[in-house]
Design a protein around this nucleic acid. Structure first.
Lengths: 149, 149
DNA sequence: GCGCGACCGCGACACGGTATCATCAAAACG
DNA sequence: CGTTTTGATGATACCGTGTCGCGGTCGCGC
Protein backbone atom coordinates (compact mmCIF):
# COMPACT_ATOMS: atom_id res chain seq x y z
CA UNK A 1 0.00 0.00 0.00
CA UNK A 2 2.15 2.83 -1.16
CA UNK A 3 0.81 6.26 -1.94
CA UNK A 4 0.81 5.40 -5.64
CA UNK A 5 -2.01 2.98 -5.09
CA UNK A 6 -4.58 5.55 -4.05
CA UNK A 7 -6.41 7.66 -6.61
CA UNK A 8 -4.66 10.66 -8.17
CA UNK A 9 -7.02 13.26 -6.75
CA UNK A 10 -6.11 12.15 -3.22
CA UNK A 11 -2.42 12.18 -4.04
CA UNK A 12 -2.86 15.73 -5.27
CA UNK A 13 -4.57 16.75 -2.02
CA UNK A 14 -1.79 15.04 -0.08
CA UNK A 15 0.79 17.02 -2.00
CA UNK A 16 -1.05 20.23 -1.35
CA UNK A 17 -1.25 19.73 2.39
CA UNK A 18 2.38 18.63 2.52
CA UNK A 19 3.29 21.90 0.82
CA UNK A 20 0.93 23.87 3.03
CA UNK A 21 -1.23 24.97 0.12
CA UNK A 22 -4.96 25.45 0.29
CA UNK A 23 -7.30 23.04 -1.41
CA UNK A 24 -9.70 25.37 -3.12
CA UNK A 25 -12.73 24.42 -5.15
CA UNK A 26 -11.05 25.66 -8.33
CA UNK A 27 -7.96 23.55 -7.87
CA UNK A 28 -10.02 20.50 -7.09
CA UNK A 29 -12.19 21.06 -10.17
CA UNK A 30 -9.18 21.53 -12.44
CA UNK A 31 -7.45 18.44 -11.09
CA UNK A 32 -10.63 16.42 -11.53
CA UNK A 33 -10.98 17.48 -15.15
CA UNK A 34 -7.31 16.81 -15.74
CA UNK A 35 -7.42 13.29 -14.36
CA UNK A 36 -10.64 12.55 -16.21
CA UNK A 37 -9.26 13.59 -19.60
CA UNK A 38 -6.67 11.08 -20.83
CA UNK A 39 -4.30 11.96 -23.61
CA UNK A 40 -2.29 15.09 -24.30
CA UNK A 41 -4.01 18.42 -24.17
CA UNK A 42 -3.01 22.04 -24.35
CA UNK A 43 -4.01 24.62 -21.79
CA UNK A 44 -6.57 25.88 -24.27
CA UNK A 45 -8.32 22.51 -24.30
CA UNK A 46 -8.34 22.13 -20.54
CA UNK A 47 -9.55 25.68 -20.12
CA UNK A 48 -12.44 25.10 -22.51
CA UNK A 49 -13.41 21.87 -20.78
CA UNK A 50 -13.30 23.43 -17.34
CA UNK A 51 -15.26 26.46 -18.47
CA UNK A 52 -18.18 24.18 -19.30
CA UNK A 53 -18.24 22.99 -15.69
CA UNK A 54 -17.40 26.25 -13.97
CA UNK A 55 -17.22 29.24 -16.32
CA UNK A 56 -15.85 31.40 -13.52
CA UNK A 57 -12.37 29.85 -13.49
CA UNK A 58 -9.70 31.91 -15.23
CA UNK A 59 -7.06 30.59 -17.56
CA UNK A 60 -4.30 31.84 -15.29
CA UNK A 61 -5.55 29.55 -12.55
CA UNK A 62 -5.59 26.62 -14.95
CA UNK A 63 -1.96 27.36 -15.84
CA UNK A 64 -0.94 27.57 -12.23
CA UNK A 65 -2.77 24.43 -11.24
CA UNK A 66 -1.29 22.44 -14.11
CA UNK A 67 2.12 23.61 -12.95
CA UNK A 68 1.26 22.45 -9.44
CA UNK A 69 0.29 19.06 -10.83
CA UNK A 70 3.66 18.88 -12.55
CA UNK A 71 5.46 19.76 -9.34
CA UNK A 72 3.51 17.05 -7.59
CA UNK A 73 4.76 14.59 -10.17
CA UNK A 74 1.23 13.83 -11.32
CA UNK A 75 1.50 15.58 -14.68
CA UNK A 76 4.12 15.93 -17.39
CA UNK A 77 4.74 18.66 -19.88
CA UNK A 78 5.07 17.61 -23.51
CA UNK A 79 6.75 19.69 -26.18
CA UNK A 80 5.84 18.91 -29.75
CA UNK A 81 7.15 20.63 -32.82
CA UNK A 82 4.39 23.23 -32.79
CA UNK A 83 5.75 24.97 -29.71
CA UNK A 84 2.54 24.45 -27.76
CA UNK A 85 2.90 23.03 -24.27
CA UNK A 86 0.71 20.01 -23.67
CA UNK A 87 0.04 18.18 -20.42
CA UNK A 88 -0.51 14.52 -19.81
CA UNK A 89 -1.18 12.37 -16.78
CA UNK A 90 2.10 11.07 -15.39
CA UNK A 91 2.10 7.35 -14.98
CA UNK A 92 4.95 6.50 -12.62
CA UNK A 93 4.92 2.83 -13.63
CA UNK A 94 5.13 3.35 -17.37
CA UNK A 95 7.12 6.34 -18.45
CA UNK A 96 6.14 6.39 -22.06
CA UNK A 97 7.38 8.01 -25.23
CA UNK A 98 5.35 9.24 -28.16
CA UNK A 99 4.82 8.12 -31.71
CA UNK A 100 3.24 11.01 -33.58
CA UNK A 101 1.65 11.09 -37.00
CA UNK A 102 3.01 14.07 -38.90
CA UNK A 103 -0.10 14.17 -41.09
CA UNK A 104 -3.10 13.86 -38.79
CA UNK A 105 -1.50 14.56 -35.43
CA UNK A 106 -2.51 11.29 -33.84
CA UNK A 107 -0.39 10.37 -30.82
CA UNK A 108 0.38 6.80 -29.84
CA UNK A 109 2.02 6.16 -26.51
CA UNK A 110 4.85 3.71 -26.49
CA UNK A 111 6.89 2.18 -23.74
CA UNK A 112 10.06 0.19 -24.18
CA UNK A 113 12.23 -0.72 -21.20
CA UNK A 114 15.19 -1.40 -23.48
CA UNK A 115 15.27 2.25 -24.52
CA UNK A 116 14.98 3.36 -20.90
CA UNK A 117 17.97 1.18 -20.14
CA UNK A 118 20.05 2.64 -22.96
CA UNK A 119 19.19 6.17 -21.89
CA UNK A 120 20.44 5.54 -18.38
CA UNK A 121 23.58 3.93 -19.75
CA UNK A 122 24.31 6.85 -22.06
CA UNK A 123 23.74 9.42 -19.33
CA UNK A 124 26.10 7.63 -16.96
CA UNK A 125 28.74 7.25 -19.62
CA UNK A 126 28.71 11.05 -19.95
CA UNK A 127 28.71 11.66 -16.21
CA UNK A 128 25.15 13.00 -16.19
CA UNK A 129 22.61 12.42 -13.47
CA UNK A 130 19.42 11.78 -15.41
CA UNK A 131 16.20 13.59 -14.44
CA UNK A 132 13.92 12.82 -17.35
CA UNK A 133 13.62 12.79 -21.08
CA UNK A 134 11.42 13.65 -24.01
CA UNK A 135 11.35 11.19 -26.84
CA UNK A 136 9.10 11.69 -29.84
CA UNK A 137 9.04 9.72 -33.06
CA UNK A 138 7.49 11.39 -36.09
CA UNK A 139 6.07 9.47 -38.99
CA UNK A 140 2.98 8.52 -40.94
CA UNK A 141 0.38 6.41 -39.18
CA UNK A 142 -1.25 3.39 -40.88
CA UNK A 143 -4.27 5.47 -41.91
CA UNK A 144 -2.17 8.21 -43.48
CA UNK A 145 0.79 6.36 -44.95
CA UNK A 146 -1.13 4.98 -47.90
CA UNK A 147 -2.74 8.22 -48.93
CA UNK A 148 -0.29 9.46 -51.50
CA UNK A 149 0.07 13.02 -50.41
CA UNK B 1 31.71 10.72 -55.11
CA UNK B 2 28.19 11.33 -53.99
CA UNK B 3 26.73 14.76 -53.36
CA UNK B 4 27.29 14.30 -49.62
CA UNK B 5 31.02 14.50 -50.12
CA UNK B 6 31.10 18.07 -51.36
CA UNK B 7 30.93 20.99 -48.99
CA UNK B 8 27.57 22.03 -47.53
CA UNK B 9 27.50 25.44 -49.15
CA UNK B 10 27.68 23.86 -52.61
CA UNK B 11 24.98 21.37 -51.72
CA UNK B 12 22.81 24.29 -50.70
CA UNK B 13 23.39 26.02 -54.02
CA UNK B 14 22.62 22.77 -55.81
CA UNK B 15 19.35 22.49 -53.92
CA UNK B 16 18.45 26.07 -54.81
CA UNK B 17 19.03 25.64 -58.51
CA UNK B 18 17.19 22.33 -58.51
CA UNK B 19 14.21 24.14 -56.98
CA UNK B 20 14.57 27.10 -59.31
CA UNK B 21 15.29 29.51 -56.47
CA UNK B 22 17.57 32.52 -56.73
CA UNK B 23 20.94 32.51 -55.05
CA UNK B 24 21.05 35.90 -53.43
CA UNK B 25 23.88 37.39 -51.45
CA UNK B 26 21.77 37.26 -48.29
CA UNK B 27 21.06 33.57 -48.60
CA UNK B 28 24.68 32.78 -49.27
CA UNK B 29 25.78 34.82 -46.26
CA UNK B 30 23.25 33.19 -43.95
CA UNK B 31 24.15 29.69 -45.10
CA UNK B 32 27.83 30.45 -44.65
CA UNK B 33 27.32 31.64 -41.09
CA UNK B 34 25.10 28.65 -40.37
CA UNK B 35 27.62 26.11 -41.57
CA UNK B 36 30.43 27.89 -39.76
CA UNK B 37 28.67 27.87 -36.39
CA UNK B 38 28.51 24.35 -34.97
CA UNK B 39 26.12 23.52 -32.17
CA UNK B 40 22.51 24.45 -31.59
CA UNK B 41 21.48 28.05 -31.96
CA UNK B 42 18.28 30.01 -31.92
CA UNK B 43 17.29 32.41 -34.64
CA UNK B 44 18.27 35.22 -32.29
CA UNK B 45 21.86 33.96 -32.16
CA UNK B 46 22.17 33.48 -35.89
CA UNK B 47 20.62 36.87 -36.52
CA UNK B 48 23.08 38.56 -34.18
CA UNK B 49 26.01 36.79 -35.76
CA UNK B 50 24.92 37.66 -39.28
CA UNK B 51 24.27 41.27 -38.35
CA UNK B 52 27.94 41.65 -37.48
CA UNK B 53 28.84 40.65 -41.02
CA UNK B 54 25.99 42.34 -42.88
CA UNK B 55 23.79 44.52 -40.68
CA UNK B 56 21.34 44.99 -43.51
CA UNK B 57 19.90 41.48 -43.38
CA UNK B 58 16.48 41.23 -41.75
CA UNK B 59 15.48 38.60 -39.27
CA UNK B 60 12.61 37.46 -41.47
CA UNK B 61 15.10 36.52 -44.15
CA UNK B 62 17.10 34.54 -41.62
CA UNK B 63 13.96 32.67 -40.66
CA UNK B 64 13.11 31.92 -44.25
CA UNK B 65 16.61 30.83 -45.15
CA UNK B 66 16.87 28.53 -42.15
CA UNK B 67 13.60 26.96 -43.26
CA UNK B 68 15.10 26.51 -46.72
CA UNK B 69 18.12 24.80 -45.20
CA UNK B 70 15.77 22.46 -43.37
CA UNK B 71 13.91 21.68 -46.58
CA UNK B 72 17.21 20.98 -48.25
CA UNK B 73 17.96 18.48 -45.50
CA UNK B 74 21.03 20.44 -44.42
CA UNK B 75 19.57 21.68 -41.14
CA UNK B 76 17.38 20.30 -38.36
CA UNK B 77 15.00 22.01 -36.02
CA UNK B 78 15.39 21.23 -32.34
CA UNK B 79 12.68 21.77 -29.75
CA UNK B 80 13.80 22.10 -26.16
CA UNK B 81 11.58 22.66 -23.16
CA UNK B 82 11.83 26.42 -23.44
CA UNK B 83 9.71 26.63 -26.58
CA UNK B 84 12.49 28.23 -28.59
CA UNK B 85 13.28 26.70 -31.96
CA UNK B 86 16.95 25.95 -32.41
CA UNK B 87 18.75 24.87 -35.56
CA UNK B 88 21.68 22.57 -36.02
CA UNK B 89 23.69 21.30 -38.94
CA UNK B 90 22.22 18.03 -40.17
CA UNK B 91 24.81 15.32 -40.36
CA UNK B 92 23.35 12.61 -42.55
CA UNK B 93 25.83 10.02 -41.32
CA UNK B 94 25.29 10.51 -37.60
CA UNK B 95 21.77 11.39 -36.63
CA UNK B 96 22.35 12.32 -33.05
CA UNK B 97 20.27 12.88 -29.96
CA UNK B 98 20.83 15.37 -27.15
CA UNK B 99 21.87 15.18 -23.56
CA UNK B 100 20.99 18.48 -21.93
CA UNK B 101 22.02 19.86 -18.57
CA UNK B 102 18.94 21.21 -16.84
CA UNK B 103 21.08 23.57 -14.76
CA UNK B 104 23.51 25.24 -17.13
CA UNK B 105 21.94 24.41 -20.48
CA UNK B 106 24.97 22.64 -21.86
CA UNK B 107 24.13 20.29 -24.74
CA UNK B 108 26.06 17.13 -25.45
CA UNK B 109 25.41 15.30 -28.67
CA UNK B 110 25.02 11.58 -28.45
CA UNK B 111 24.68 8.89 -31.03
CA UNK B 112 23.69 5.31 -30.36
CA UNK B 113 22.79 3.00 -33.23
CA UNK B 114 21.05 0.63 -30.83
CA UNK B 115 18.44 3.29 -30.02
CA UNK B 116 18.00 4.04 -33.71
CA UNK B 117 17.32 0.38 -34.26
CA UNK B 118 14.75 0.21 -31.50
CA UNK B 119 12.99 3.29 -32.83
CA UNK B 120 12.61 1.74 -36.24
CA UNK B 121 11.38 -1.48 -34.71
CA UNK B 122 8.77 0.29 -32.57
CA UNK B 123 7.51 2.37 -35.47
CA UNK B 124 7.11 -0.69 -37.65
CA UNK B 125 5.34 -2.61 -34.91
CA UNK B 126 2.77 0.19 -34.85
CA UNK B 127 2.44 0.39 -38.61
CA UNK B 128 4.12 3.79 -38.81
CA UNK B 129 6.44 4.93 -41.56
CA UNK B 130 9.15 6.77 -39.65
CA UNK B 131 10.28 10.23 -40.85
CA UNK B 132 12.37 11.43 -37.95
CA UNK B 133 12.51 11.84 -34.23
CA UNK B 134 13.44 14.17 -31.42
CA UNK B 135 15.12 12.61 -28.45
CA UNK B 136 16.33 14.70 -25.55
CA UNK B 137 17.64 13.53 -22.20
CA UNK B 138 17.58 16.01 -19.32
CA UNK B 139 19.86 15.79 -16.34
CA UNK B 140 22.70 17.35 -14.41
CA UNK B 141 26.08 17.49 -16.10
CA UNK B 142 29.29 16.55 -14.27
CA UNK B 143 30.04 20.20 -13.48
CA UNK B 144 26.59 20.85 -12.02
CA UNK B 145 25.67 17.60 -10.33
CA UNK B 146 28.00 18.14 -7.39
CA UNK B 147 26.93 21.68 -6.65
CA UNK B 148 24.27 21.10 -4.06
CA UNK B 149 21.56 23.35 -5.36
C1' DG C 1 21.57 46.52 -70.35
C1' DC C 2 16.42 45.38 -69.59
C1' DG C 3 12.34 43.64 -67.79
C1' DC C 4 10.06 40.53 -65.00
C1' DG C 5 9.39 37.73 -61.35
C1' DA C 6 11.38 36.31 -57.18
C1' DC C 7 13.18 38.12 -53.10
C1' DC C 8 14.17 41.46 -49.35
C1' DG C 9 13.34 44.12 -45.13
C1' DC C 10 10.34 46.54 -42.51
C1' DG C 11 6.46 47.04 -39.79
C1' DA C 12 2.47 45.04 -38.07
C1' DC C 13 0.39 41.26 -36.34
C1' DA C 14 -0.94 36.60 -34.01
C1' DC C 15 -0.17 33.71 -30.48
C1' DG C 16 1.47 31.30 -26.21
C1' DG C 17 2.95 32.09 -21.98
C1' DT C 18 4.01 35.05 -17.86
C1' DA C 19 3.94 38.97 -14.50
C1' DT C 20 1.31 42.31 -12.18
C1' DC C 21 -2.19 43.89 -9.35
C1' DA C 22 -6.59 44.81 -7.18
C1' DT C 23 -9.92 42.06 -5.01
C1' DC C 24 -11.60 38.64 -2.11
C1' DA C 25 -11.87 34.88 1.26
C1' DA C 26 -10.26 32.42 4.84
C1' DA C 27 -7.23 31.61 8.57
C1' DA C 28 -4.56 33.58 12.71
C1' DC C 29 -4.47 36.29 16.46
C1' DG C 30 -5.60 38.93 20.41
C1' DC D 1 -15.89 38.59 17.83
C1' DG D 2 -13.31 42.11 15.15
C1' DT D 3 -9.00 42.97 13.09
C1' DT D 4 -4.97 41.66 10.68
C1' DT D 5 -2.48 38.96 7.66
C1' DT D 6 -1.77 35.67 4.35
C1' DG D 7 -2.65 33.50 0.13
C1' DA D 8 -5.67 32.45 -4.03
C1' DT D 9 -8.09 34.29 -7.88
C1' DG D 10 -8.98 36.45 -12.38
C1' DA D 11 -8.59 40.46 -15.45
C1' DT D 12 -5.31 42.80 -17.81
C1' DA D 13 -1.05 44.15 -19.61
C1' DC D 14 3.07 42.61 -21.13
C1' DC D 15 7.00 39.96 -23.47
C1' DG D 16 9.20 37.12 -26.93
C1' DT D 17 8.83 34.06 -30.79
C1' DG D 18 7.42 33.45 -35.13
C1' DT D 19 4.55 34.88 -39.39
C1' DC D 20 2.36 37.87 -42.84
C1' DG D 21 1.72 41.66 -46.23
C1' DC D 22 3.40 45.15 -48.83
C1' DG D 23 6.33 48.45 -51.22
C1' DG D 24 10.77 48.54 -53.02
C1' DT D 25 14.91 45.96 -54.85
C1' DC D 26 17.73 42.74 -57.13
C1' DG D 27 19.01 38.14 -59.71
C1' DC D 28 18.81 36.18 -63.77
C1' DG D 29 17.42 34.97 -68.43
C1' DC D 30 16.93 37.30 -72.67
Amino acid sequence: MTSSDIDPQSRFLQFMSRKGLNTTSQRKAIAEVFFGLPGHHSLEEFYREISRIDPGIGQTTVYRTLKLLCEAGLANEIQLKDNITRYEIANPNAHHDHLICARCGKIVEICDPRIEELQKEIAEKNGFKLFGHSHNLYGACPDCRDKNN
